[in-house]
Each structure stands twice: as C-alpha cells, then as structure tokens.
C-alpha cells in the first residue's frame, strides 16, 4: 500500500493509551491525561485523574457514581451525533450498543475519518441505544471475543434457559453472577420482557447502577435489596450479584443455591466448570466473532487496528480480506467487564 496509513495520520499510541495529536486528546487513557475522551463507564475505560473529561451525559453520570464527584477538574457532556471541534480535529460520539451511554468516537482530521469503537455489540439490548455503523478509512476495534468459536446465542434464549431451570428446580435459589454495570440491567430488562413477575433480589454492590439506569428511563423488572430478604425463603427466586460474590459466604443461608453466571466466556465449558457454575448463561455485551467481522466490513475501512482481546485471529482474518491490519497489544483493558481473572471476593 503506497498511501500513508490513515490511522497513523490521526492516532498514535502512547503509554497512557490512544492519542490524537491534531486535537491533543487521549481516548480512554489508562492514566491521568490533560484531556480525555471516554467511550463508556466501565472501570478499565473510565478512570479517575484526567484534567478534562468529555463523554456522553450517561457516561459522566456513571463515572460520578463510581469514582466520586471529583474524578476530574472539568466535565463536558456531548450528545450522540453532534460533532465538536477540538483543535484541528472534529469528533462525533455515536452509539456503540455496549452499555448505557457507550459510544464509538469518530475523529476527522487531515482529511481522514478514523473510528475508535470502544467496546461494542450488535445484539438486541433494551437498555441502551443500538450500535450505528460509521463509514471510515480506518477502524480501531476491540476484539474481546475475537475467535471464531465465539458466536453468542440470542440473549432471550439464555434467559429462557434460566426460567426453565427455575421450573425444574423450584426450591433452589438461582444466584446469577453478572457484571454490575450493563449486564445486570440487561438481564433485568430481558426478564421483564420474558414476563418474570416477581421481584429480583439484588446484591448491594449493584444498586446504584440499577437506580441510575431507572433514572434514565430504562424499564426493568422490580428489584429489592437482598439483605432485606428472609434468606431461607428464597427458594425459586432469582438473586443477582457481582460474579465474585456468586460463590461466597453470604449465600449460605439460602436454600441450596444454584449458581448461574451470565458472560460471553460461558461459551467455553472449561471456563464455566472452573468457576463451579452450574448454569452458564452465554450473555455478552461484546461483539462476537461474526459481529466483529461484519462490522469491520460495514465500515468500509481499508485499515484495521485491534486494541485488545484476541487480536491475533482478527488481524489474521482482516489480512485475508485484503485489509491492512495491526494489533496494538494495549494493556489495561478487559479488567472489569467480562474480565476473566478471579477478582477479590466481596462480602455482603
């Protein structure tokens, strides 16, 4: 390819993360930066310590709730689809369909269009605005599930699996591990769609995010704080908690807990067994392999950068499609949502 790389003309990688010299800003910096553009509220993308932060209203609200009111010196909210000029660059936030407020960022500079995807998915999710593909010269994509073995089933079917289990084991408490931001609310909304008419009992660590979604008008099934429950009477009920709490001491008073876990990693049986999960639910807030490939094609890009995840396979595939592709091997991502490590145990 004789042309200079479009992505390299607009973005560089620095120790703090992706940086755009034309606008003098970082995207999702992993350490404090002078100006940070934040794609969404998960803790591996939205960190405290930057001077100025630009993000959607919902992402700023999530950051405030999780990081405290003083996580940056100045905040600026931006609406989806409304371009903003920063220095010599023009940026537009476009829905990414990942969690509430999540955005891709389109950067136009030096006559090139580059899109940084953040985390995204294409599947149905009643809790956030759906992903919109953007035509661009270069696409900077995540690849959390960037292997062809990952093809997420419809989330509705997985919720049906949970309801079927409640039918077969009506005396057991169904304890569902789910990430506090995004996954939990999506399950609550899907349960409402599926006609679940009893309250879902939730772990204290999830309450603030659920309240925040409700305030934004997201419709979900009724929730109650699990500490107010008469635990021995929770047979046949659903309890929602962070994954790290799904096998801990606080479950002991519940009748014969059945542990479920909602995550894209549940596609691989060994992962589920390792965690002692009895009912794996393959529900993910990330694009699966087919969505990744389809999205790359839809953008019409001639160049692909892969930020994090299973970069190697997606880069290999992109090259077979005639694209210039390169892995960025960025560190610090994938720590919160769908993180695979054994996080510290919490007690409730």
């Amino acid at each position: 390819m004789a042309e200079q790389s479009a992505a390299a003309a607009v973005l560089t990688t620095t120790p703090a993360g992706l940086y755009c010299p034309a606008g003098d800003f970082h995207i999702d910096p992993i350490r404090g930066a002078a100006r940070a553009l934040v794609t969404h509220g998960h803790s591996d993308h939205a960190r405290a310590g930057s001077t100025q932060v630009l993000a959607t209203q919902a992402t700023l609200a999530i950051m405030r709730a999780r990081l405290g009111p003083n996580f940056a010196c100045s905040l600026q909210a931006i609406r989806y689809g409304e371009p903003l000029t920063i220095g010599d660059a023009r940026v537009t936030f476009v829905p990414a369909g990942h969690v509430l407020g999540s955005a891709q960022i389109l950067i136009e500079a030096h006559g090139r269009r580059v899109v940084v995807s953040g985390d995204y998915k294409r599947a149905h999710d009643p809790t956030c605005a759906p992903f919109e593909p953007i035509r661009c010269d270069a696409f900077v994509s995540e690849a959390t599930f960037g292997l062809p073995v990952f093809r997420h089933p419809p989330a509705v079917d997985e919720v049906a699996k949970l309801l079927a289990s409640l039918r077969v084991f009506p005396e057991r408490t169904h304890v569902v591990g789910a990430y506090s931001l995004g996954k939990a609310q999506r399950l609550l909304a899907l349960l409402l769609e599926a006609g679940w008419d009893r309250p879902v009992w939730v772990h204290g660590a999830m309450e603030s995010m659920i309240a925040l979604y409700r305030a934004d008008g997201v419709r979900m099934v009724e929730t109650r704080h699990v500490t107010t429950a008469d635990k021995p009477k929770l047979g046949g009920e659903i309890v929602l908690c962070p994954p790290s709490a799904a096998s801990d001491i606080w479950l002991r008073k519940m009748p014969d807990p059945l542990v479920a876990f909602a995550s894209g990693w549940m596609r691989v049986r060994a992962r589920a067994r390792q965690r002692g999960v009895e009912l794996p639910l393959v529900v993910s807030d990330h694009a699966d392999w087919s969505e990744l490939c389809a999205t790359v094609k839809e953008t019409g890009c001639s160049e692909l950068w892969v930020t994090h995840g299973a970069e190697e396979a997606l880069v290999h595939w992109a090259r077979t499609q005639g694209l210039a592709a390169r892995p960025l091997h960025m560190i610090g991502f994938g720590d919160e949502d769908e993180a695979d490590g054994l996080s510290t145990e919490t007690q409730a």
Binding site: P148, A270, A313
Partner: peptide, 19 residues
C-alpha cells in the same frame, strides 16, 4: 490458522468443532 488458535483456546476437539 483460525482453527489452531481456537483449539488452543478451547482445549477440547469436539467442543472446538461444535463452536
């Protein structure tokens, strides 16, 4: 190449092929 990367990740032949 994609099969090899996948098999390496999943670790079980039947399961890799199934997925």
């Amino acid at each position: 190449a994609l099969f090899a990367l996948s098999y390496d990740f999943v670790g079980d032949l039947s399961e890799t092929v199934a997925l």
